[in-house]
């Protein structure tokens, strides 16, 4: 069996609310290649999170198909669970557990061997610069640290697909820079990352960018391709050209 080029493929993906009155995602066709960093950008309310939730199997689509690594989602979502790591927009970790307890809780959900999870946790605490906070209650940590804990929980089982929803929101520029360096390292090792963002300069660091507007993919390409196509200097300008009205109307 040949390995498919795309790890994620959605076809005519639709999610409607209130009997079709609200069209959060409205016919999304998305193809994400293995090992790439795919930035999914759009204004607030454009449908990024809804699309990501459907890909991760958390939200069932109204219609359309989702294939993740050959598995049909949501039907085979529990088979997919071992291979994906999700860091939601809200820092969803347990604030009354320590950093270590949070990470080990997720390790146990993936039923990792004790030795394996211990060494993996140590590695992640080092990479994410959390060693000194290992036994600290999450509630006592800063926003940036909480986000790092959330990312560590998503990475504990070494997934091949990472879905990060606004992973760097509220993070200071230094830490954001550092996050992207780490994302590149993961990508080099073969991990695919889909990262939603409404911060345009972040998207420039991705391998490819998908621009979503009103639940539809309106443009896609590498940062260089997009800038060249619209004859602008930054992705922000591309975004403003394509989605500016919507942004202003919000």
């Amino acid at each position: 069996m040949s390995i498919q080029e795309y790890i994620v493929e959605t076809k005519n993906l639709v999610k409607h609310y209130n009997k079709g009155e609200v069209k959060a995602v409205n016919g999304l066709d998305l193809k994400v290649k293995r090992g790439e960093i795919y930035a999914f950008i759009g204004a607030n309310g454009a449908g990024k999170t809804t699309a990501l939730d459907m890909i991760s199997g958390v939200l069932y689509p109204t219609s359309g198909t989702i294939i993740v690594d050959g598995l049909e989602i949501p039907r085979e979502r529990k088979r997919m669970a071992h291979m994906i790591g999700v860091a939601p927009q809200d820092v969803s970790v347990y604030s009354d557990l320590t950093v270590k307890e949070n990470i080990m809780f997720f390790a146990d959900l993936y039923r990792l061997e004790k030795a394996q999870s211990n060494s993996r946790m140590k590695e992640l605490l080092g990479v994410l610069k959390l060693e000194e906070k290992e036994n600290e209650l999450v509630r006592n940590l800063s926003g940036g640290m909480k986000r790092r804990v959330s990312i560590a929980c998503a990475l504990i089982h070494d997934p091949k697909l990472l879905l990060f929803d606004e992973a760097t929101v509220g993070v200071d520029p230094v830490l954001r820079q550092w996050f992207w360096k780490y994302f590149k390292e993961l990508s080099k090792k073969g991990t695919t990352l889909i990262i939603t963002s409404h911060v345009m300069d972040e998207a420039e660091k991705a391998d490819r960018i998908g621009l979503i507007r009103a639940g539809v993919l309106i443009e896609e390409g590498t940062p260089a391709e997009l800038k060249e196509k619209y004859r602008v200097q930054t992705i922000e300008e591309v975004f403003l050209k394509l989605a500016g009205d919507e942004f202003i109307n919000e």
């Binding site: 991760s56 958390v58 994906i84 959900l109």
Partner: peptide
């Protein structure tokens, strides 16, 4: 946090 649990096995 329950959201995240939905994405696990």
């Amino acid at each position: 946090t329950q959201y995240r649990l939905y994405t696990t096995p």
